[in-house]
Design a protein around this nucleic acid. Structure first.
Length: 378
RNA sequence: GUGGGUAUGGCGCAGUUGGCUAGCGCGCCAGAUUGUGGCUCUGGAGGCCAAGGGUUCGAGUCCCUUUAUCCACC
């Protein structure tokens, strides 16, 4: 499934085979939480901007439209007309970030829907069942993401429960994959490492979950309030305890700089709302840094967002036009910025892979960061 | 030409019976946002209150003149 092609230090270059096709890593997964990339980006657009794998969310699709509906319609791939890999997040994070009145017990979590307020119960089994109904390529384990400010004893207790939940996730996934009417009987399961910023808890947890021989491992609970240095430190401590011959996924991260630092520390899967959310807000990424397309200086700027960029926005439209669309509140303005940003991220990953292939990642990283951080804002 | 109104940061306006470092919205600039509620939030720059003169301890606020502009009417 996962074939390691090359290593430079801890940085990994690999191919990951799935029933929905091959993923070249390191890779950035494009986030489409509710089975849609926000900003009016269709799955037909994704191939044009180099998307390899899309990410959707268990919690959101469960509350609307309902995973039973998606299953009745043939699963997520058919529903959203996307034939490449899809990873579904387990809903664990949303239970803690969105839902109100949550109550955590050993069985799972009871919480209120942020859509209509109804009470929902979700535990490892429910999360696996929902993800099985969605029939994604990769399912994520149902975990608890404790606050980065949580005290040590709470984190320890939470992580222990997450481990028990993971065992249940695996058992349930095995059961579901063997059922007759399962849409994707080859659905994979990634476990999630937790432990906040406590190295020893993280490491012990990593040792435990690697014993379960899952299809991949994620590092969760980062980029939730701790410093970049703390995040990098955790990766340095924990990744060595995860299997080198399995994908390592850093959940919810991050900025281009975060990604370069994490690749260097052995991470090969990423996802983040930044390119899409920032795109909707007119913030675009370029090799010379981030730009705000709302800025007045672009009012008469006839150049594309980034000169030389091959994305649909840059090949066809000017900064002045895009700024106008954004100021006018036109969806097209957001769409063009999102397309550009996703292309930028996908393209960055491609450059990283090429550098790894040629054994020059270290130089690439230094030069790239140099230009990105010092590039004068045009 | 006559009568009336208005002139306050880029734009639109508040500014109480004249009283502390002149406010607000939008805009502008800079940040934040990391397993996404098409948001939201945080800072910052920018006005000698049309110009000139007067009354007063003190005027954006009262008086006079000028200029600009708007609305009626001839």
């Amino acid at each position: 499934m996962y074939q390691l092609l090359k290593q430079e230090g801890r940085a990994k270059r690999a191919v990951f085979e799935t029933v929905h096709g091959t993923v070249q890593t390191p890779v950035f997964m494009n986030v489409g939480t509710v089975a849609a990339i926000k900003g009016a980006v269709a799955t037909t657009d994704l191939k044009e901007i180099g998307t390899q794998i899309e990410l959707s969310n268990t919690y959101h699709l469960h509350v609307r439209p309902g995973d039973d509906k998606v299953k009745a319609l043939g699963g997520l791939h058919r529903f959203m007309n996307w034939d490449r890999p899809i990873l579904t997040d387990s809903g664990g994070f949303q239970v803690f970030s969105l839902a109100k009145l949550r109550k955590i017990k050993e069985e799972g979590v009871t919480f209120q829907s942020h859509i209509d307020g109804r009470k929902i119960f979700m535990g490892p089994e429910q999360s696996m069942q929902i993800q099985s109904n969605l029939a994604s390529t990769i399912a994520m384990a149902f975990d608890e993401c404790p606050s980065s400010r949580a005290d040590r004893s709470y984190v320890q207790q939470s992580v222990d429960r997450t481990t028990r939940w993971l065992v249940r996730c695996k058992a349930e996934m095995d059961r579901l994959n063997s059922l007759e009417d399962t849409i994707n009987p080859h659905q994979m399961l990634f476990g999630i490492n937790q432990g906040a910023v406590f190295d020893d808890i993280r490491i012990e947890h990593a040792k435990q979950i690697r014993e379960l021989d899952l299809d991949g491992y994620a590092v969760g609970g980062l980029a939730v309030g701790e410093t970049h240095e703390e995040m990098y430190h955790v990766l340095e401590e924990v990744v060595p305890y995860l299997p080198v011959d399995k994908p390592v996924y850093l959940m919810g991260v991050g900025t281009p700089l975060n990604i370069l630092e994490a690749v260097e520390r052995g991470v090969d899967f990423f996802d983040c709302v930044y390119p899409s959310r920032n795109g909707r807000h007119g913030h675009v990424y370029t090799a010379d840094g981030k730009r705000n397309m709302f800025n007045a200086k672009y009012e008469l700027d006839d150049r594309p967002i980034e000169e030389g960029c091959g994305c649909p926005a840059c090949r066809n439209y000017s900064r002045a036009y895009i700024r106008h669309l954004l100021k006018a509140g036109e969806m097209l303005g957001m769409r063009l910025c999102v397309l550009h940003n996703l292309y930028f991220y996908n393209h960055l990953m491609e450059q990283i892979r090429n550098a790894l292939d040629e054994g020059r990642f270290a130089d690439f990283k230094t030069n790239w960061i140099d230009r990105y951080t010092q590039g004068g804002k045009v």
